[in-house]
Nucleic acid binder design. Structure first.
Lengths: 154, 154
DNA sequence: GAGGTTGACACAAGATATTGTGTTTTTTCT
DNA sequence: AGAAAAAACACAATATCTTGTGTCAACCTC
């Protein structure tokens, strides 16, 4: 840790305390050359998550972008889109992955929507999976129905 | 240092290395509860960032000053100037640099604007890069168009 | 201006981190 | 794709940091 005053490379820790409820550690250091003291913070690496699109392009995970898609699917449905997006962000942080394909991201959204609101789910899926023809759409609806009846059987 | 995966408060250091020529320390930690590993950085307390102008003059990075420029470029455009300035400040903090040339700062703004709103981008660029003649302006617009058509190809 | 809160400072005993060396994996660059 | 750089991993011997307890000063808030 280079001293900000004289640039010397070595310093010793004089005090060290957790801060922010354990989110990081503040240390008070003293330069071994000039004896000046300074403060440092040890912080979690800011995990930036990249979304890998179908063409291989990487872009930073953009919460508001995802929100737009979810908002569309949940329009006039009793589902809180923001909550869903937050949940996803949370899950991404927790898995400590820095990359996810747009496909996987879509699956995550669908998994959550399927549980909460099936109309929103089908809307989202129809965009995400690009249901272009009646057949794929129908087969998705059928598998949805199967899931429903299985659930009722519980 | 709370584990980002399970939230447990205690972890041990598994590896620790100076990085950035001693500007900070990267540590690899392992959660004592779930054994997951994560990375932390120990960094100097909020260092002041200096902007080096073309004539060599240094001045403290001034957020509101930068905001003025971005506001002009984003006038009546669907872009949140403040958000952009915040993002830049964030990035400056994260890179742990204490100095940046005004040119690099301008490039950062342009990189962000190019992604968000191309009209704002061209406006900002025309001021920042001092497009004095039609030719440079045109060539910038052409490369912008190329980017657009590549994007549509996805 | 009394009271609460936060950062700096001190000290000491126990617990943990650092650093060289070397390999492997991942990421970045061309 | 292939090379180069950066990060993750391992290990071991040594040196340093952490944490409780307590004091003091600076800064808000009411």
């Amino acid at each position: 840790m280079n001293c900000p005053a004289c640039g010397f490379a070595e310093s010793k820790v004089v005090d060290s305390r957790p801060v922010n409820d354990g989110a990081s550690i503040r240390r008070r250091r003293e330069c071994l050359q000039c004896q000046k003291r300074f403060t440092t913070f040890e912080i979690m690496e800011s995990v930036q998550i990249f979304v890998i699109k179908k063409n291989g392009e990487k872009q930073l995970f953009d919460k508001s972008k995802l929100l737009v898609g979810v908002l569309k699917a949940t329009q006039k449905r009793p589902v809180n889109a923001e909550e869903i997006v937050n949940q996803i962000e949370q899950e991404l942080q927790n898995t400590l992955r820095h990359e996810i394909t747009s496909g996987e991201l879509g699956e995550m959204v669908m998994d959550i929507l399927r549980e909460r609101d099936e109309v929103a789910y089908v809307r989202f899926a129809s965009v995400y999976r690009e249901f272009n023809d009646i057949d794929t759409f129908m087969s998705e609806l059928k598998s949805l129905k199967r899931r429903q009846s299985r659930k009722k059987a519980d």
